[in-house]
Design a protein around this nucleic acid. Sequence first.
DNA 1: TCTATATAATTAGTTAGGCTAACAAAATAT
DNA 2: ATATTTTGTTAGCCTAACTAATTATATAGA
Lengths: 156, 156
Amino acid sequence: MTFDENSTAQQVFQAFMRFRRLNWLNWNGTGPKPSDVRVLFCIKNHEGDHAMGMKLSEISQCLHVSPPTMTQLIKDLEEKGLVRRTVDHSDRRIIRIRLTAHGEKTVQQARETVAEAFQGLVDFLGEEKSRLFSSLLSEVVEFYTEHQTQLEREDH
Amino acid sequence: MTFDENSTAQQVFQAFMRFRRLNWLNWNGTGPKPSDVRVLFCIKNHEGDHAMGMKLSEISQCLHVSPPTMTQLIKDLEEKGLVRRTVDHSDRRIIRIRLTAHGEKTVQQARETVAEAFQGLVDFLGEEKSRLFSSLLSEVVEFYTEHQTQLEREDH
DNA sequence: TCTATATAATTAGTTAGGCTAACAAAATAT
DNA sequence: ATATTTTGTTAGCCTAACTAATTATATAGA
């Protein structure tokens, strides 16, 4: 079988295996968790077009997680004082999420940390390879997005 | 800040964000879990140089997880009849792990599934790009391996 | 030979990061 | 007015790890 013979597919697979355990958000085990950071980034990045704050469901879609997952994440961030929840004026079902001042500061710090780390990677790889890598990775994502296996959970 | 200005670092970061949720082992929610598959592959790949079976700790090192984690994984696989545990003759502390016939068959099937999926990816990207991608990904892993942040857990 | 130290694996408890099913409240459609 | 849809929540569950402490065994040192 070609998978055994140091084929390209096998090489890519091995590269994936090595990649999967990387702590690429540079989390040190304290402070905002990686998932916190992703939520905060998402909110921050959409402040321009969501003056009233993003809907909870919009954030869940943005990060490709389910609404209940996002409910829990936002609850935790609210308890930490990083976000504020408000009910939308025109539709009381909708919960809008905004950063607090503390959240703004946390995002800023996280951004600097992440920017620094990724700049380090770009410096290591070089500009050209980094762009190439990013582009290839996007193609990989494209492939899997089109071929993603649907989870079949066992009946309960 | 350059991270905001569609810089290369930001592009790589965004590519990572999109990549992280991919189900690249093509798990459909039933059958051996992704972690099971990785353990089985590890055992299978080392059968040549570990006639008596790999030590539990060797598998944990191979997959970069802690021994207690591997203890639990092996326990589960043993219960499922996929592996067999034996005490080493020359050192009774050592537990050696081998595939059962059922485990062999499961590995074979998993390999075929994974091989097919990765071949699909290689076909999609093309041979040259796939090799390039694999090589770049290995460089990325190299970077992070050298710059990995150590987790600082809070004192209990 | 005996004691101290090191090693390999295990147990228990915990955390991070998800998911689904069911439900409640609100909005919209009929 | 009732039925249906939408938005978010709650509860329970799963996967995939980690650490601290412990036990059994092997090795080192006196």
